[in-house]
Design a protein around this nucleic acid. Structure first.
Lengths: 170, 170
DNA sequence: TGTTGATTGACAGTATACTTACGATCTAGG
DNA sequence: CCTAGATCGTAAGTATACTGTCAATCAACA
């Protein structure tokens, strides 16, 4: 019997593929974030790190990488940049010489407070072209998909598990 | 009158934000792509470049960057790597000494043909956790959103406009 | 107790992704 | 024709994002 005909190779197929749409949307999201937050000189990842350190003072780099779903290797340089800007400080843990604990500086807390409404505006702008009901539907589907695909990309720990040792409930 | 109370700063707010979900989904998508295509040693961007060069033989780097929504600067190194793997060749354009035209090599065409079904499987895996109707809805919304946000990130030319000089209709 | 095994932060290496800038070249207006 | 501006590829610089590996340290078990 004849083999099935191969579909033609077109850019249209690429443009309709999930991978392309996710990559493109990530580009757009970063671009909007950077534009809105220009005055703060903070990247999306640096922002996420500040939030997590604020929420979990005294967290170490490995657990932070789990909380913000960010590679442990790269996180080192992110922290360095936040340290260079005096937004974050690292203190050696007395009970474990391997670990360095992370804290926001006063300046870091101030910047975080000031940038939050700006980030909210950026987040809103990303979805602005859609109607309210569509925004809600999209966020629901994305939340589901990211959650169900969680193990597909290398995140060493689930965020909740990562924080058990801190004795924090939320 | 009293100022509105600030919402509390939580990681939950970050996890529900569009920017976080888009970044996370992009990580997952790349991870699934790389896992499926391990044997071919091709990245998602390299794959998109091969498709575009196949679809538009003799395209130059600047137009290619518009077609695959990829930064012009970075594309240089992507092409270098494809050239090093003998998948792509560059020929100087006789009528314009600035331009180098891009073509697939025979080996590039073979790899492209072989990798396409593997990429399809990767694309399917990204959406697998969702029900068919949900997949369709998500892709519809993402297509809309990327399309309507197109100018938000710096893509120098719309893909269609970029190709006018080639005298190609599609 | 003493050594195996796991964990932590750091580093090297590769590949996006973006910003500017720059020389070579082309094109259009005068 | 000839110069002002645009475009081409390239490069330098910054910041993710991932793969590995490594020494120092810790924890747990024989």
């Amino acid at each position: 019997m004849p083999s099935k005909a191969l579909p033609p190779i077109t850019m249209e197929a690429v443009y309709a593929a999930p991978g392309y749409l996710f990559r493109r949307m990530q580009q757009i999201a970063v671009s909007i974030f950077m534009e809105e937050c220009k005055a703060f000189d903070l990247t999306p990842v640096q922002y996420a790190a500040l939030i997590a350190i604020h929420t979990h003072p005294g967290i170490d780099a490995t657990r932070l990488s789990a909380v913000i779903a960010f590679d442990r290797s790269t996180l080192g340089s992110v922290i360095e940049r936040l340290q260079a800007k005096d937004l974050v400080e690292r203190k050696p843990a007395p009970e474990d010489k391997r670990i360095k604990l992370l804290y926001l500086t006063k300046q870091g807390a101030v910047i975080l407070r000031d940038i939050i409404p700006v980030v909210e505006r950026a987040q809103a702008r990303m979805l602005e072209p859609l109607k309210p009901a569509e925004r809600k539907a999209l966020m629901g589907l994305m939340t589901q998909l990211v959650d169900l695909n969680n193990e597909a990309s290398r995140v060493p720990l689930r965020a909740e598990d990562a924080l058990e040792h801190l004795g924090k409930a939320g």
